[in-house]
Amino acid sequence: MTRKIIHVDMDAFFASVEQRDDPALRGRPVAVGSAQGRGVVAAASYEARVFGVRSAMPSVTALRRCPDLIFVPHRFDVYRAVSQQIRAIFLDYTPLVEPLSLDEAYLDVTDNRRGLPSATATAAEIRARILRDTGLTASAGISYNKFLAKLASERNKPDGQFVITPAAGPAFVAALEVGRFHGIGPRTAERMARLGIFTGADLRDRDLAFLQSHFGKSGAWYHAIARGEDHRAVTPDRPRKSSGSETTFSTDLTDRAEIEAAACRMADDVWRWCERSGGRGRTVTVKATWADFRKVTRSRSFPAPVPDLPALHDAARGLVGALFPLRAGIRLIGVTLSGLETEEPPQTMLDLLPA
């Protein structure tokens, strides 16, 4: 049976909530985050995006691009509550809802609970209900698999939807630049360019053996999506795979003791989640961002789950030590525990906050 998959993506979600709740912000460039020190843009309204302001951009850069940018502090409790409203709407149509974050999810509506005649009609009704109940707009992509549905949801943003049929799927992928594929980041796109792969058609023309020789385990995935193939099911209540926390410093750190102390504070955040959820993980990762914004990670995997907070502290300090001697000052440090074995209920849309 051909699946009917919808990818619903809220439009500039955090910023749109702020504009909804404060009429003075409507029609103006808005960024959720902090303009102070080394603040980072968590979300940008469409009015701000016109100037090139994007999420994860340093606030100082955003203000250079848009001097009239208005910064508002985040209100994650409000975003969670709105996300809960949206999830309730989804569940009126299908039990097969796979949240990706607070503001997007996959829905399998092959058999929809309301008996609507098509996935297109279902997506339109869901978007209308979201607007009616929350005052916010959503965009949707409709296709026969998750990969194409997510690509489709970007085509008519904001407040639109787009369909990629089984007949149109391969041609749609062939015409697309590989840098637009989800799962192909800038570095992989650069590697592909060096191999003469610029579009989906170029990727399709490489055989499986070639892709596996150059991209390892990912080669089979690239071989499939280049042909519009993705057999992943929509999986509700995905088990959580990791827990992490990070912080950006007001000034670059070079002192090892200060960096280790910051890493331990991030480990404290991670361990609080472990205690609350009953989760335990085997792999500890420290992420650092240098003063020039280059990133580095160091990881260590253990034969058994990390047993307690002191052990997590020890692992984090050891991984910080692996960063020395420093190539530059450190502006950000993060700690993640992965390879989780958890007793917590599977995560929902409300649990997925930005790092």
Rank of each mutant, 00 (worst) to 15 (best):
V97I: 13
E154P: 03
R238F: 05
E154R: 10
G279N: 10
Y106V: 08
V306K: 12
D252Q: 09
I259Y: 07
R194V: 03
S218E: 12
G141Y: 06
Q84P: 00
P99E: 10
T120W: 00
M266D: 00
G219V: 09
A152I: 01
R327N: 11
V173D: 07
L102D: 13
A189E: 14
T289Q: 13
D268M: 11
P354D: 15
A261M: 05
A209P: 00
D108I: 11
P303L: 03
R155H: 04
E98L: 10
A174K: 11
K241G: 02
F198D: 01
H7I: 02
F71I: 11
P236L: 10
R298T: 02
D9P: 09
V97F: 07
A105W: 10
K150N: 05
A193L: 04
T283K: 04
I130E: 05
V53T: 04
A56E: 00
I164F: 12
G196F: 01
V284A: 14
P29Y: 10
I259A: 06
L309G: 09
S218V: 02
A315V: 12
D237R: 15
Y222N: 02
L332I: 11
M266K: 08
V335T: 10
A42R: 05
G196D: 02
G216C: 06
D159V: 02
P23G: 10
P73T: 03
A81Y: 02
S243F: 12
R26M: 07
I333E: 03
L253T: 03
R331N: 03
N156D: 09
R80L: 09
T251V: 15
E125Q: 15
M57K: 06
F172R: 02
D351F: 14
D159I: 08
P346K: 12
L107H: 05
R132T: 15
G321I: 08
A88E: 15
D77V: 06
A48R: 00
P236N: 04
P73H: 03
D308H: 15
S277F: 10
V178P: 01
G200E: 00
P345Q: 13
A226W: 01
D207I: 05
L195F: 06
T342S: 15
P99N: 12
F249W: 05
V30I: 12
R114Q: 15
T110W: 07
D9W: 02
A311T: 14
P95L: 09
E258Q: 15
I142N: 05
L309D: 05
F198R: 14
L208V: 00
F181L: 09
G329H: 04
R20W: 13
L332Q: 11
R20L: 15
Y79P: 01
R49Y: 09
T254L: 11
L211N: 09
L323N: 08
G39V: 11
L116A: 05
V335C: 10
A119T: 01
Q84H: 13
S45N: 07
G216I: 13
S34C: 08
E258A: 15
M192E: 01
A56R: 02
E190I: 03
D268V: 14
Y93Q: 04
V234P: 02
R80F: 11
F51I: 10
G281I: 08
V78C: 03
G160A: 00
R194P: 00
V97S: 07
A316S: 15
R187I: 06
G115E: 09
